[in-house]
Simulated scan of single mutants.
Amino acid sequence: MSLTAIAIAVLLPEALPLQAQERQQDQQATQTAQEGRRVHSVRRGDTLWDLASFYLSDPFLWPEIYRLNTMVVEDPHWIYPSEQLVLPGAGEIEVAIEEPDRVPGEEEVVVVPEVVAEGPPPELQELKSIFVPREATQTTLTYEPVPPLAALAVSASDFHRSGMLVELSELGPRGKVIDAAVPENILVKVPQSPPVYGRIYVSHPGGEPPQPGDRVLLSRIDRRVKGYGYVIRPTGIATIAAVHEDVSDAVIIQLFDRVGVGNEVTMLESFHMERGVFAEPVGTGPSGELVAFLDQQWVPSIEDIAFIDVGRDRGVVVGDEFEIYVSSRRSPEGFRLPEEHIATGRVVRVTEGTATLRVIEMEYAGIAEGLPVRLIRKMPS
């Protein structure tokens, strides 16, 4: 509310200040109420602002007059002649006490009286405690850093998902993925591949029922590589949850590829690799040839899976490393070209006559079927 608005004169277009003689008349017209309050009879030109300035010595206290006369004054901007306004008495004025302005950022200084603790009375000073004080001891805590886990040359996941090149007779007893285990009352479309923790029905490998808790490898038989067998592509790992008369109820716990009806089911081969143990360089070792890839790609890359024709029958074990290279040759012009290193592969799975390599280093993107390979690092026996 602006001061100009408050100072609008009563029944006049402009507010006129009270004249000295009118002030004298107002004092004479003021009478004492039963409660001891004064009463002012409004005259032409009066405003609450002027009345507060005259009677209360502070024009900003005009709301105190308005507060006592709300039954008479509807709008504090307008008061009318002959209205009887009760004036505040001593002790009735509500004044808001404002704290002094403080400079922003300035800390407030609070003076706290000093309290001096008194000692025990003389009659208690001679008393001794029944508790025997202990000597202060200092405990030093020593934290020894926990060494990180040593790396694995080949993880269990690499071993199971990498696939192999093998004759079907080497797979052992096999079953089949029969169907996805979906209740008939759930009207949903069965996905092409069950998700992780999805349930499937599998036939018993070799006709022998497995035990609940057994794990099985799900795989798909891909193309045949002449002279070496079939490319076996793992699709997942499942745990047998329940065994029925003809089938077992299995839960998929790992997915490597799309699981479908007809996938092969074999008992999961156990695998263990000691941490921190890696292949060591050797001078000589078995050599052979890269015969196929798990995935036929235009441009080979690191992490690709390849198969070589050197296997368990020649002493190869998981973790061994082979060099893939180009032999020395002559150029069309007759010049002798030196041998070139192409890539390095680590054995992640071994069969009787083949081994599965995972490419771990590549000098040139020129890995191709038919390139020679040779053992360059051997796992400690």
Rank of each mutant, 00 (worst) to 15 (best):
M1Q: 10
M1G: 00
M1P: 01
S2V: 01
A9R: 07
L12D: 10
A15G: 15
P17Q: 14
A20K: 10
E22K: 06
T30V: 10
T30F: 08
R37F: 04
R37C: 01
S41T: 13
S41M: 13
L48V: 09
S53K: 14
Y55D: 00
F60D: 11
L61P: 02
L61C: 00
E64Y: 12
L68C: 03
V72D: 06
V72T: 10
W78D: 01
W78M: 02
P81M: 03
S82D: 14
Q84I: 10
L85E: 01
I93A: 08
E94D: 03
V95W: 06
A96Y: 07
P100V: 02
D101H: 05
E106D: 06
V109H: 05
V109P: 08
V109S: 10
P113E: 15
V115A: 04
E118L: 15
E118A: 14
P121R: 13
P122V: 07
E123R: 15
K128H: 07
V132P: 02
A136V: 03
A136S: 05
T140H: 00
Y143N: 11
P145Q: 06
P145C: 01
P147K: 13
A156N: 13
D158R: 00
R161C: 08
L168K: 13
S169G: 11
G172L: 11
G175T: 04
V182K: 04
N185W: 13
I186T: 02
L187D: 09
V188P: 03
V190T: 14
Q192H: 08
Q192W: 04
V196A: 15
Y201C: 02
V202G: 06
S203K: 04
G206W: 11
D214Y: 06
V216G: 10
L217F: 08
I221N: 00
I221S: 07
Y228F: 14
G229E: 04
I232N: 13
I232A: 10
A241V: 09
A242C: 02
S248Y: 12
D249N: 13
V251P: 01
Q254F: 05
F256W: 06
V261K: 15
V265G: 04
M267F: 12
L268M: 08
F271D: 12
F271V: 04
A279M: 05
G288N: 12
G288M: 05
E289L: 08
E289I: 11
L290D: 12
V291L: 06
L294V: 00
D295M: 00
Q296V: 14
V299C: 00
F307C: 04
D309N: 15
R312N: 07
R314G: 10
V316W: 09
V318A: 06
D320F: 04
E321Y: 09
V326D: 05
R330E: 15
S331T: 15
P332R: 14
E333T: 15
G334D: 06
F335R: 14
L337P: 09
H341D: 04
T344D: 07
G345K: 02
G345I: 01
T351Q: 13
T354I: 01
A355S: 15
L357W: 07
R358W: 02
E361C: 06
M362N: 03
Y364C: 00
I367L: 03
A368V: 00
E369G: 00
E369D: 08
E369P: 02
R374F: 08
I376Q: 10
I376Y: 05
M379K: 02
M379Q: 02
S381I: 07
